[in-house]
Structures are given as C-alpha cells and as structure tokens.
Design a protein around this nucleic acid. Structure first.
Lengths: 220, 220
DNA sequence: TGCTTTATGTTGCAACTGCAACATAAAATA
DNA sequence: TATTTTATGTTGCAGTTGCAACATAAAGCA
C-alpha cells in the first residue's frame, strides 16, 4: 500500500512540512507502516518501545492491565494522534501500558532516535517535526489529565457528568454522540457496567440528561 | 541570588550541556527565576502558560480544582522536574491545572517559545536541551499514568496497596517513607481522609502492612 | 510557657455501587 | 434464515466508604 503524502501533510505531526519534502524525510527517518486488525495488540505492556506510532486511520486504545487481570481504558486515540512517545522518549523505556487496535487501523512508525537526532539531510524540516511532536506529547498529557479529572469524582453520577461535559465541550454542543459503548465507557470510568446503565437511567429520570444509545443531550 | 551553574548541570534538563555554555544559553533563552513561599500559587488554572518551570529547590504540587471546590492532587514534583510544559507546548495554552508550592521553593522559568525555536547563538547545545525536555515531558506523562493506575482500583485498600507498591518500587525497598501526609495522601487517592486512616489500621491488623507515621513496611 | 491552629485517629450510620444472576436486544457467523 | 455470541438493560443484596462529629496529638505562634 502506498502512502498518500498529501494526506500526511494534514496530520498534526507533519503540519508546516512541504509535501515534496515528506518522502525523503520519511525514508531518512526509517519510517515504516503496518496494518492491524480489530482487537489486535499493537504494543504490549513491558515491551521496549523504540518508535512512536502515528495513527493514519482507525482508533487505538491505551489500556492498562493490572495483576489481577482487570483492565482500564486510559485514552482513546483517533487519526493523527501519536502514541508510544512517553516511553520511547522518556526515561522509562519499557511500556507501562498496552496499545490495542480498537478498530482495524494503519499505523506509521517512526524510530524515535532518528526523530530526535537530526541528520544533515532533513535538518530544515526536522526542527518543525520535533516541534510538532512536542506539541502532540503535551496534548496526550492533557488527555491523561482529563481522564484523571473524570475518575477523581467521588460518585458515579459525578464521573458520568464530568465525562459527558468533556465530550460536550469537545464537540461544541449539548447534543453529541460519544465514541464509547457501555462496556468501554464503564471501563474508562473505572465503574461497573450494570451500575453505569442503572445510574444513566436514574439521571434521565431526574431530568439531568436525555439519551438514546450513544447519543446524549445535556439538560443542564 | 546567583545561579549556581555547576549545580544546574546536574539537573536532567541540562545534562550533556557544558557548564561554560549555560550562562549564555540561559540569557539567550530569556530565563528568569523566582522564589515562592510555602502554599503560594505558582500558576493558576486557566491562566495562559508561556513558560516551562524547572524546580531548582522545593516541592511543587500539580492540583486540579473542580467547580464544587474539591481539590485533587495530581502529581508531586521535586527538584529537577519540569512543569507547565503540557500547556506551553501543547495545543491547550490555558492551564487546566494549578501549580502550588508545597514547600518554599525556587523556580527557573524558560519561555517555551525560545526553547523550541533555536537561535544561531545557542544552536549547538540547543538541540540537546530540546532532547532533554522531551524526555522530561515523557516522564511527566508516566507519572500521570501512575496516578491513574492507583485511582483506577475499585476498593480503597487496593488503591492504598497500589500506591505503596509504587513507592516501594521507586525507593527500591519494602521499607520506605512516603512524601505525603494523611491529608495529602487522601487527596491523591481521591478518598476520604478518615476512611483512609481506618483502612490503614485494618491493613495493619490484617498483617498486610506495618507503619508508623509516614514510614511503611510491606509485609507482602 | 500557654494558646491557637492544624493534622491525625476513632466510630456510627446511611448510601452508593460492585457483584451476581437473569432478561432482552443486537450483531456476528454459519 | 437459524444459531451463536456479544452488548446492553434490570434488580436484590451486601460490603465499602463517604460523611459527620468528636477526641487526641502535633505544630505554629504569641
């Protein structure tokens, strides 16, 4: 499968880099792409991470498994987002989390060492690449804070409300569709699935929200 | 107060940069330092962040306040750690969290724009600076994941255990002293203070741990 | 030193929520 | 299409934990 370089320039990691420069740059960086089927593991916890991944298409979940087999959904990531950077760039080379293909997806991998160590050939746009990457890492950081904000709440109702508010903000509307099913949402909220549906129906009864499947409306 | 440039080279942000180069570099970057008293606010949520801060001495808490006045302790940071990068470098310029001086401390600020946009003068070591900074941002990311790992647990006992295990790992010993008092620990665990002390005494009764004030011993 | 403030420990009670077990709906597969 | 699998909704029950109120200890301060 061929890379669509024009499409690539639309990704945040490559903004400000000319389409003509991309092929040389990607070759120079030793990038490669890979397809994953739904449910496939892209990167398993405690494996060493040497590359950052860019999601060209599909959805990736960052998940954490604990020793008793419980699983938590940390972050959901879409097209254009980065993953693996915290490990490939940080002091903790071994991944503390796993990355899972939530849908079938295509990932472009960039060996981190080459990204951060500029070479003569690409030096002109290289700097822009690093800048973009730093921004994306910062954004990931904010996503983690968002999750903490949600699960810090004491009651399940407050957690749900915090999550729905975040979604409402992101989608700029009181009426929106969430990207998670009940099972996944329960996992993200660190709550029990049945308790989640129960609380959702109580919240509708109490006139807080109004929903149908994954489409919600905040009634303030 | 004068900067101790030799001491600065020991900070992770400046590793690999010569002591002789530091003064010029810091001037070129427009860095400045500031002292804060205990309990003082270094950076308030929703203010625009243009600089990253390096903790030269003291302890800084990253905290999140919700609309009802509840507060959560997100991360505790010590000497050499970075803060503010997620905002000054990311797409979300407004801080979503506040930074508070947990003890009196001295902070060195570096305007982010100048850090990321190299200038001729400092270009040789500039690249190393960016590399160090990216690593530190990744580390911060991991700290946030650590917190999520802890508060994702369903029961308070599991949360406490997860936290103690992390501390035990970090300090490479089954016997260690935690950096948080009961109030702060409760805030970090998103739990009630009195419930926390109750559960701690139950855990000691059940032979899981053994503690005295802030010094704990894991009995496996 | 004595006084005030803050941190920590203790306990009863009510309520939230995890768990289990089941029913139903939707989706995947043959 | 029929059958299996998976996702979702419902509910009783018991355990955990937040809350309040109070006691004690430690720290800050005059």
């Amino acid at each position: 499968m061929q890379l669509d370089f024009h499409q690539l320039t639309l990704f945040p990691l490559f903004t400000g880099i000319c389409e003509e420069d991309l092929p040389a740059m990607l070759t120079c960086l030793g990038s490669f792409q890979k397809r994953y089927k739904k449910e496939e593991i892209i990167l398993l916890e405690s494996n060493e991470v040497r590359s950052v991944g860019i999601i060209l298409s599909g959805t990736v979940h960052m998940i954490k498994n604990d020793s008793e087999g419980y699983q938590t959904l940390l972050v959901t990531m879409k097209e254009g987002e980065l993953f693996g950077e915290s490990f490939s760039c940080g002091s903790h080379l071994d991944a503390r989390v796993s990355f899972l293909a939530a849908t079938s997806c295509i990932i472009l991998f960039l060996p981190f060492y080459k990204v951060i160590h500029s070479c003569k050939l690409t030096c002109t746009f290289h700097h822009r690449l690093i800048e973009n990457m730093v921004r994306l890492i910062g954004d990931k950081n904010v996503q983690l804070m968002d999750k903490i904000e949600v699960i810090s709440k004491k009651t399940l109702r407050e957690k749900i409300m915090a999550y729905l508010h975040q979604q409402s903000m992101e989608q700029n509307s009181k009426h929106f569709t969430i990207p998670l099913g009940r099972l996944e949402l329960a996992e993200y909220l660190c709550a029990d699935r049945s308790a989640l549906t129960r609380e959702l129906s109580y919240m509708q009864r109490d006139g807080l929200i109004c929903y149908e499947k994954n489409t919600f409306k905040l009634l303030l």
